[in-house]
Design a binder for these strands. Sequence first.
DNA 1: ACACAGCCACTTGGCGACAAGTTACGATGA
DNA 2: TCATCGTAACTTGTCGCCAAGTGGCTGTGT
Lengths: 225, 225
Amino acid sequence: MEKIASKKFSAGEKLPSENKLADRYGVPRMTVRAALTRLEERGYIYSKQGKGRFLKEESTQIQLHLTGKISFTEKMEQAGYDLETRLISCEKIRYDEKIYKSLACGSGDSVYKVSRSRFIDGQPMAIHKSFVSEKMFPEIKTEGPDIRSMFAYYRKHGHTEFANNKTLLSISFPTSTEQQLLQCKSMVPLIMVESDCIDAATGDVLEHTKILYRSDKFKYDITMD
Amino acid sequence: MEKIASKKFSAGEKLPSENKLADRYGVPRMTVRAALTRLEERGYIYSKQGKGRFLKEESTQIQLHLTGKISFTEKMEQAGYDLETRLISCEKIRYDEKIYKSLACGSGDSVYKVSRSRFIDGQPMAIHKSFVSEKMFPEIKTEGPDIRSMFAYYRKHGHTEFANNKTLLSISFPTSTEQQLLQCKSMVPLIMVESDCIDAATGDVLEHTKILYRSDKFKYDITMD
DNA sequence: ACACAGCCACTTGGCGACAAGTTACGATGA
DNA sequence: TCATCGTAACTTGTCGCCAAGTGGCTGTGT
């Protein structure tokens, strides 16, 4: 059943119809439909009623070095990609134990989420969420919507050297809003990288970040040296 | 539609029936079925005809530090997990450009794949594939099936200090055989970590490894320091 | 000979009815 | 009173028909 997937229809377009595949492999059409639906949800094909199913052109994966020494912006520009960042929102979040603990905040403090999406060559590739406490940056509520680069914002407030502490990587699937933002289907896994950015000089936690990468667009270099 | 997922039925058992959910949310049964099927393929629920759908008990994620300094075996035993390794196969592979290049082999050389599965507390968690050239280890064909630990095997052949070069991380979905080996459903993403293990003293490439982790069972610590 | 319109064969999308499996409850008989 | 069998009311699984959309082919009129 799933063998249909890898059967080198590597051409850019056109698939046999559901009935053809059903006859060819001797399985009911529903089975073929289910398999094709899975392929569509993973983003490999798309379908048009009345016309047929077509393979999407394969997108090349961008190799990304997962180190916190330089910002995402600098990484991509060093690699020669056309990067664009758009602000999605800047709003106060509800209490979240893990985030508040990372930022050394109590339940009485306010924490703001600055969300932005990263576009490479016009395609959305990642969502970057920065959690910042009002305690550390009192003007975040008003300044947040104008932030272009978090690192630049921190430098403006007197922080010069940055470091990352514990960095965790896990896999999730996109919510419906994340599907819209990343223009991907529901079964495209996302790689979530969670980390705290600290001021290397004082040790203060500046932000807690959650970055969601489209797993089909990136390959991660996690070389340890 | 997908909101059904997170709707805190966090109890260990029992979901409303398809018809109930369809009436409740005012959508056709097929839509509910599609959503539930996705949940089943992701491994969150299971269904029994005539009985109903049930939530699986949530499995805790194991935190794994992705450094190549110590072996997977040592990592897990240090963390206090009951680890068991079973050999799956040891066989010669067809020519693969990337693997052969990593091992500094030409198309005339033979390369063997040593596959083993890792069990933690009796549950399969990862598949470990080691690619070894006959050029480097002439006895691999006969000794391969008896290997318990690759590192121990390399030490036996005079290699004492190990290092990793470029380590790449990417996401894939399990093939049908991988689904069987890992006892997981088709939509559970796998994390593939690819790396070369080299002799730190001589610089020789000992093996090229591909490790497939169940992404729902692990959380990865990729802290850089 | 050419243009246009309608029909038909093909595609995917969707819905409804029925099949299969399980459980609970009640009727019936000893 | 208790056991057993049958039926009915659920559950999920499956199949097939029909609707909707597209494109090509053919017939007909100018």
